[in-house]
Every structure is written in C-alpha cells, then in structure tokens.
Simulated scan of single mutants.
Amino acid sequence: MADALERIRGKAEQVDVALLRNGLSPRLDGIDGSHVHLLAGLADELPPLVVHRSTMRVVDGLHRLAAARTRGQRQVPVVYFDGTSEEAFVLAVRLNATHGKALRVKDRAAAVRRILDTYPDWSDRWIASVCGVAPRTVAKARQDSADTGQRLGTRIGRDGRRHPLSVEEGRRTAEQIMREEPSASLREVARRAGVSVGTALDVRRRMLGGEPELVSHTAGAARPVAAQRVAADAGQLSVRRIRAQLGWLVQEPALRYTDQGRALLRLVSATLAFLEQSDSMEGVAPVHCRHSLDAVARACASGWLDFADQFGEEKTPSRSG
C-alpha cells in the first residue's frame, strides 16, 4: 500500500458536523469526556479532521469533533482520505499513535491484531511502526493468531517491497530466475526474489564462477557454522578470480590506450584493492563517522551495480591463448 499520508487530498474545507460518522477510531473505550472538555475550552483553532471520503467516517479527530459539537459549531474543517476502509483504519491507528491523546496499551494491542488479520503479509516492523509498539509485540501477536502470512514465505516491509522470511529461499529464487531468464538485470532479479541487489550479485558471481550455492536446499534448515566459514573463503576466492580478470582487462588495447579506458581501469583497481582490505578497515572509523560511511559505501555500491547492468548478462570473456 502506498504511503497513506500522501492520499490525504486537497485543502481543508468546511463540512456540516451532522454528516460526519464515527467507526474508524482505534480507541476501544470511545471518546474521553475530560479530553473533549479540554479541547472545547481552547481558544486556538484546532487542526482539521481527517475523514474517509467514501463513508464520511472520521479517521482522525473524534475528540475535536465532539468538542466542536459541545461548542455548538455547525461546521468543522475537514481534509479527505481516499482509499479502502481497511486502509483508512491503518491511517487512523498511525495518526492516533503519533499525536494528540495517546493510545493506551490495549488500544495498540487490538490495532495490531486487527491489522494482522487484514494484512498478514506485512512485516512485524511495518505493523509495529504503524501501531507504535515494539516489533516483538507484533511477532508475539502473530504467533497467537491464525497467521496466513506465516505460510507465504515472504513479508512486505516498510519499503513496500516483498522480502523472503529466509535468506536461503531468496537466494534459491534468485538463482532460478537467473537460469530461466539470463537477460534479467540484477535489480529485476533482486526485486522479484525479494533480496538485496548485493545478494543477487553474489548469487550471480557463484553461478558464473561455477561455485556451488552455499544455502541449504532444505526449507527452513539453518546454515551450519562450517558452511559459514566456506562462504567467507569463497568470497576471498572470488576476489582473486576478479583480480585475474582485471589483469586481462589491463592488457586490452581499447582500454589501455585511451584516456577513459585508463581512468576506468584505475577506478576498478582502486575498488578491488579496497575489497581485498575491507575486513581490516571495519574498526578504523570512529562511531560518529559510521553513518556517513554507510551512506557513501551504499551509494558507491549502487553506482557500480548500475554500471554493471549496462552490460547485461553476458559472461566476462576468459583470456584466450
């Protein structure tokens, strides 16, 4: 679902209070009379209500509506939300959990259960961010409910993308897509398999290098410690193989004897030199620099992947005698 906040349409307009209905509030005990009395006595103009356009039910602002009726107002300012009733409830929870009168623990718990019933494939973190609870609270509620999302093998995260519940399943799917559709780009494979582009790249490297996949082909099986060590060794081996490919590229006249070709070779060489030393660099940066380094590293990785996608799925030619 697209960000619901972006579907609150238009400028505020005055609407007759008699046309507005209750029914979307996540507050189990309804309206708090003391809070209504407090709002009714405020001299400042209150923010507009958020209303589900198709049903005229209040998404956010029931206490403000009650305060307006207490003051005898015939109209109140309203902005509209366009979407389904289920989406409107999620928005109601999100708005009520972040401002105004705080939702109680039981209100949040009930909202978690209702959203789980409606959207079982949403991730624990996404639902937790909507309801203002910890992800472990959602996970516990999911275990206690008849969760069909548990059987789907994937969950939709806050980024709107579908992610596998296990890395192994995502890697197997990525490998299958690459074998069946060799022209698919890394980004397309990653999107469809529900894995990161980096994971898709690693799967491709193993396929091109003739290396066996290190994931278990038994659903739900955990990767043994020995396999983790093999994965680390294989990563170093891949770097050595890439170094050999770079040695071949350095001898290529189209690159070696042009300014742009030499610049490209220098960039590739510097990147590969970093890969060979990256493990020893982890503790170099102080804590206050790590966020910026993370952003820079990810941007560089994304740039290289965009560059690699220009060449399609063709294998790098091996050097012939």
Rank of each mutant, 00 (worst) to 15 (best):
T218F: 09
V51F: 09
W122V: 06
A301I: 08
G303R: 01
E175R: 09
I242H: 10
P212L: 08
G10Q: 01
H63N: 03
L42M: 08
P224C: 04
L20K: 06
L275N: 08
R262P: 01
S166M: 00
A2G: 15
T316V: 15
R151Q: 06
A134Q: 04
F274S: 00
V189Y: 05
R108E: 01
F89K: 12
V76R: 05
A66C: 05
G72A: 09
R161D: 11
V239F: 05
S216L: 04
V287P: 00
A18H: 06
T148M: 10
R21S: 06
A43S: 13
L46I: 07
L152M: 10
D124A: 15
V105F: 03
T148Y: 05
S145F: 01
R155E: 15
P253S: 13
Q310L: 12
Q245T: 06
R243D: 14
T258I: 13
T199H: 10
A109H: 00
A146W: 12
A66G: 00
T271N: 01
S123I: 12
L208C: 06
S302R: 11
D29K: 11
A18E: 08
S85W: 08
E282D: 10
S216A: 10
A244L: 14
G61S: 04
E169V: 04
R319Y: 05
P48K: 04
P135L: 14
Y80W: 15
R161Y: 10
D147P: 10
D147S: 15
G220K: 02
I156F: 05
S238M: 11
G33V: 12
S34C: 03
E211T: 02
S302K: 09
Q236G: 04
R241S: 11
D107E: 15
D16M: 03
L293F: 13
A68N: 06
G160E: 08
G210Y: 11
E211L: 11
P182H: 02
F274L: 03
N96H: 13
D117T: 13
I31M: 05
T55H: 01
A174D: 02
R172H: 02
A244I: 08
V15E: 13
R69K: 14
A301T: 12
V230R: 15
R187Q: 07
G100L: 00
E6C: 01
A109C: 00
H163V: 11
R104W: 07
P286K: 09
L267G: 10
V130K: 03
D32Y: 01
I31S: 05
V59Y: 01
L28P: 00
M178L: 15
R172E: 02
D60F: 07
R9L: 04
L24Y: 13
G303F: 02
C131K: 01
S129L: 00
V59R: 04
D279N: 07
Q228K: 12
E6N: 08
R191I: 03
E180R: 06
V50R: 08
T154G: 05
K101G: 00
N96L: 12
R243N: 13
R9N: 00
E213A: 12
G170Q: 03
A128V: 05
T84W: 09
V239P: 04
L62Q: 12
S302E: 07
I156C: 08
E168N: 14
R298W: 02
K140D: 11
R71H: 14
T199V: 15
S318N: 13
H288A: 08
R262C: 07
I31W: 07
V130R: 11
M1P: 15
D44N: 03
V284C: 13
H291Q: 12
